[in-house]
Simulated assay, not measured.
Amino acid sequence: MSETTTPQQLERDLHVARHHGRWLSDEERLELEREESERLQSDEQQKQLRTKLTILAGVCVLLPPMWPLALGLTLYLLFPRTMTRVGFAAGAFIVTGAIVGAGLLIALIVWIFTVLL
């Protein structure tokens, strides 16, 4: 133990040791602290997300013409990974459809010219 260990730190270490049934090594203790900080960060992000959704719900109630945008944003805020994938798929579908449509339009124009001439 280092000489800068405080009584609060010792009590916390004792509580953790009792919880795990043994004393933890420094690496295990650091890993637990890292996991705890990640959990706290995740909780903070969830809190921010709930705040954003509350504000968005208020905007949605107040501005009915913006309901489709609010729905899309709500889905993105609730399911960011899924909606990102859906957005990429929809974008790819739209680009592919535009290319196919342009090709069909060119083919139609060429066919019309051949029939007229």
Rank of each mutant, 00 (worst) to 15 (best):
L24P: 03
A107D: 06
W111P: 01
E28V: 03
W23D: 06
P68K: 05
R50K: 14
H20P: 03
T51H: 11
L32C: 09
R12D: 01
F79C: 13
L14V: 04
L62E: 14
I106K: 13
Q45G: 02
L77A: 13
K52Q: 09
E44F: 10
T5A: 12
T114L: 15
R18H: 07
L71E: 01
Q46A: 01
E28D: 11
A17V: 02
L78G: 11
M66G: 00
D13W: 08
T6Y: 03
L14H: 11
G87K: 10
C60Q: 03
T82S: 08
Q46S: 08
R85V: 06
R81I: 04
L108I: 10
V59M: 13
R81E: 10
L78F: 02
T51K: 10
T54A: 01
G91S: 05
C60T: 12
L104T: 12
T82V: 14
R22L: 06
S25D: 12
H20M: 08
L53D: 06
T84P: 01
K47E: 13
T96N: 00
A102K: 07
R18P: 02
E33S: 12
E11D: 08
F93A: 15
C60H: 04
M66R: 08
L117C: 00
D26M: 11
R81W: 05
H20A: 09
T74H: 10
R81S: 04
L77Y: 08
P7N: 07
L71H: 01
L108H: 14
I94E: 00
W23P: 03
L116T: 15
K52F: 08
A90M: 11
V100H: 07
T74E: 09
R39Q: 11
E31Y: 07
L14M: 03
Q41Y: 06
